[in-house]
């Protein structure tokens, strides 16, 4: 019997496979397709304190083996989420992680203050790295000082573990990751999407109404993997890796590079059963190679 469980120190996962924020709705959208109980966890779509309208369409454009999105974090706000959605999630035996957003530091704090009083939440993922909210792609995770400041503030008020989600749109991601660690984050997750652009040559117009968006999918995997590797080498706290993971083999690459768990994003769009298939592939990999405990493979690149 293979043991896929992962101990992050502050949180135990039944397996390392977590559905990524923004690609998994509020979780309930996937209940017609998969049993959420089988997941290591899932991250709920980013929540602001207030409802948000999001960006005008077109919000999506497909590129070579990738997808650029500028959804703009449309959402129902944290209050409606706690009243209407959370009660339908908390009986699932999996780690429910809430992706926390804010226009400014006070809003991040308000979301966490509200959620601190709600049951059934395993951790917060601090979204300081969404590239398509501000027109120029700016976000706190582009700067070590603003990263430190938001993480420090949230760690002060949070009653739950905090995972800080990092942006790849920086010169040296390890510098930002170290800053988040110094501010007390319990883990980092990386990478969010790459700031990107697509143009229709016939009309010379951008393909997205927001002009810029975030690139995800298999196209970004090698760069994401490199960043996860670099960060895992430098940090003492756990690293959760993501970026274009579609198969068990992809997930293993991130684990071997040093990630303790992985998030699955764009693959959920292509196949709603992607997370479950990846878990099964991890099982098969371990069984075939007589690996008793998957955790032993983490950070073992030769």
């Amino acid at each position: 019997m293979t043991d896929l469980s992962i101990d992050l120190g502050f949180m135990k996962l039944k397996n390392p496979v977590i559905a990524a924020s923004g690609t998994f709705g509020y979780g309930i959208e996937f209940t017609p397709f998969i049993d959420l109980n089988h997941l290591g966890g899932f991250v709920v779509k980013g929540l602001y304190y207030s409802p948000r309208e999001g960006n005008p369409p077109p919000r999506l454009v497909e590129t070579s083996s990738g997808l650029i999105n500028a959804i703009g974090l449309q959402g129902i706000g944290v209050k409606r989420f706690s009243e209407e959605i959370l009660p339908r999630l908390i009986d699932y035996n999996t780690s429910i992680i809430i992706n926390v957003c804010g226009e400014h530091e006070d809003e991040y704090a308000a979301v966490v203050d509200h959620l601190n009083h709600q049951p059934g939440i395993a951790a917060y993922e601090l979204n300081i790295s969404c590239p398509n909210v501000k027109k120029d792609g700016k976000c706190p995770a582009l700067d070590p000082k603003t990263t430190y400041s938001v993480v420090k503030l949230i760690k002060k008020s949070s009653t739950r573990p905090v995972i800080t989600k990092l942006s790849p749109n920086v010169t040296d991601i390890t510098e930002i990751a170290l800053s988040a660690q110094e501010a007390g984050t319990d883990a980092v997750s990386l990478v969010n999407t790459f700031l990107a652009l697509a143009i229709d040559p016939n009309t010379r117009k951008p393909r997205l109404a927001n002009i810029l968006g975030g690139l995800s999918g298999p196209a970004i995997k090698p760069i994401a993997l490199r960043m996860v590797y670099q960060v895992a080498c430098r940090l003492k706290i756990p690293v959760i890796g993501m970026g274009g993971i579609c198969t068990g083999g992809d997930a293993l690459e991130f684990l071997i590079a040093g990630a303790k768990a992985v998030e699955i994003g764009t693959a959920n769009f292509i196949d709603p059963e992607a997370t479950i298939k990846i878990i099964n592939e991890l099982h098969n990999f371990c069984r075939e190679r007589k690996i008793g405990k998957l955790e032993t493979i983490i950070g073992t690149m030769k």
């Binding site: 923004g22 690609t23 998994f24 709705g25 959208e29 996937f30 017609p32 397709f33 779509k45 309208e53 999001g54 005008p56 369409p57 077109p58 919000r59 999506l60 454009v61 997808l67 999105n69 959804i71 449309q74 959920n268 769009f269 709603p272």
Partner: peptide, 24 residues
């Protein structure tokens, strides 16, 4: 244009007025 077809990606929005609510 649709990313997923199952309500997860929020990519396929159009502006509607439904039950008194206007939005995407």
């Amino acid at each position: 244009i649709m990313g997923c077809g199952i309500g997860a990606c929020w990519g396929c929005v159009k502006r509607l007025k439904k039950d008194g609510v206007t939005g995407w």
